[in-house]
Amino acid sequence: MAIIDIRIELKKGVADPEGANTKKTLEALGFEGIEDLKSVKVYEVTLDMTAEEARQAGEEMCRKLLVNPVIQRYSVTVR
């Protein structure tokens, strides 16, 4: 059994209105010193296979569905 985390974020230069609005709202609540805030999505996938097979499966999942490479990049880590 292996658990992988698939982390998907917007590529540098792609506007992140969700992150920008969240940052603005946190600042309105009084949080100071927020240099930057990015919205990131993480999928946790449990797979009945070895760690290396799970990592490869995660990469394939990104290529086939989870990521649009025009605007997003991803990383797969095995727990």
């Binding site: 917007l10 792609v14 209105p17 920008a20 490479p69 025009v70």
Partner: peptide, 13 residues
């Protein structure tokens, strides 16, 4: 074969 375009969240969020 590979995506050429993507639809991102509206600029207004």
């Amino acid at each position: 074969a590979e995506p050429v375009i993507a639809f991102a969240a509206n600029a207004s969020a």
